[in-house]
Nucleic acid binder design. Sequence first.
DNA 1: GCGGATCAC
DNA 2: TATGGTGATCCGC
Length: 635
Amino acid sequence: MSHHEPIHDEWDVDDIEWDWSEEGVHEDELALEPHDLNAEDEPIAQTSPHAPQKTIENGEIATSEDTTQSQEDSMKSRLLINPNKAGTQYIPKHIVAKIVYEASQGSPFFLAEQRRDALVTARIQSLQSRVQAIQTMDLRLERGIVESVLRTVEKEWETSERRWIVCVDMDAFFASVEELDRPELKNKPMAVGGMSMLSTANYEARKYGVRSAMPGYIAKKLCPNLILVRSNFDKYTAVSKKIREVFAMYDPQFSPMSLDEAYLDITDYLSAHPEHTPESVVSELRAEIFRRTMLTASAGIAANKMLAKVCADINKPNGQKFLPVDRESIMEFVRTLPIRKVPGVGKVNERILKSLGIETCGHLSWSRINPRLNRMLNFFSWFVMFASNESCRDSERKSIGVERTFAPMQKSSEMYEKLSELSEYLATDLKKHDTKGRTLTLKLKTTEFRLFTRAKTLMRFMCTAEEIFHCAQQLLALEITANPGLRLRLMGLSMSKLSSRSMDEDGIAKFLKRPSPSTPFPNPQTLTCPVCCKEFPDISERDMAEHVGRCLEDPHIPDGSGEIKGDGMKRPSKRKKETKRDKPSSNLVEWMQKRSSSPLLDQPVCPVCATPFTDPSDLASVNRHVDACLLGEKQ
DNA sequence: GCGGATCAC
DNA sequence: TATGGTGATCCGC
């Protein structure tokens, strides 16, 4: 058994298919044009002849094709891990989808994906019925408030400090490293990985629809001449070390995300080198990487991490994209940006949003005029994220785990054997990280690809293999008895609720530890919620936006207990624990009147001009006033 | 605190 | 021969 380094694999899932040999491809490939998604070669999911029109005009919600989309089409797009644009590959996308679909059909993996897909479909249908229900409501007042809050956020942004953030991403990293040693592979379709799974494909292979995270044997169906190269992590790590030396030249505090990707804050470098522009610095950086490694990198330069990340994808490979920091440039950029490009929007959320007719981030601004839908999906914080200077601070590790896939296993004796092995691995890793933990999570995947976890939290910390196994074995025993005939293909153990093992860092000492060294980005500040007027010291803009969104939307939570739950979107950012407020009423004005404790709401005021309402109970007059204000009329 | 689901890399 | 491993977050309970 080979030792297992806690290496973060590179799977290049975000690499965009790109044909760099052809002129004129770029514009089509930027995926920033509003009609891009409706180009001749549509995504598989939308080829259904029954697909209804989607509109998003005037705040009207048009639920989309999901109800009519066939299950097969849905599965085809689901199986296409990383769909490409037409024209950049020899094999048209719908053919690729068909081949992948047929190669997968009937397999246990396929059936499991079908079950998951059906759950998403149900989620979407329930969401759509909720969306229908809010169509007829009068939302003018809420719109006014949302507008006002957004103005506040924008003002914060205008006055905040500007930073230049760069996201650097190596092109087809693993494959390119392999090509250094075997240059004859350069012009041949090649992928790193094995028959069961690929981690990276070179650009030649991508033309055939070969993708990272695709099983090798399916890739071979797409491209029979595909050359498979086993991965050599030591090589990638060594190259990674070289590129990080370059990063450190421009930002000693850079944040590596993986072997081939990192964020840099070059603001200080630019101050120290006034003769440079952000673009020239990044050109130089990429040239230096190439000089040292003979590998190309792509980069994005923008006002924050999120925008930089999106930009890094645009002129890939071997290119860079500069997004000016002024408000207009950013708004224009974001307006036509497909939602799938937003970090955090994956396959499922893309499908959910598209089912509501939301395909670009510009459509997200629709949440400005429909706070109720916003509450369901919480677009609000996403919207604000584009204007956020904040970036994820490198946080302390919260869990550490191991998992292994193996040949189907049915005998419980073998399972305990495997569990013991995993316990050893985990103990080794815990020791390596000088940590211990109180919560142990057992993860199991059946041969039918059903995935489940069982956890146990102890009063004391675990760190040795014996302690881990003792706890894990109880969890496993419960499942074995509860599921006779259990057949497994994967087992995993993960430890959380961690604490340092060395004495000097134990207990209260770890709270006194200085913040993590690489925090090159602007830090939280004191902000005031424009809705509840509470002050939040040391809060990030994103968390603030999150709070304001909740604060704003709470009064709209319907009282009915029959509300369908569970079909909201995953939130883009973590939510701070908030203090419990009054049970909100479904009527905003009533709620305002009830909440006399809030300074802002002592007397209900116009959310736009802040003039107190003479008679807040006169809803019609309130709405007239707000409408007039929004139109800019002087009261 | 637990478990399922989603996502990034 | 037959779809990965590590870590994180969010939601609903």
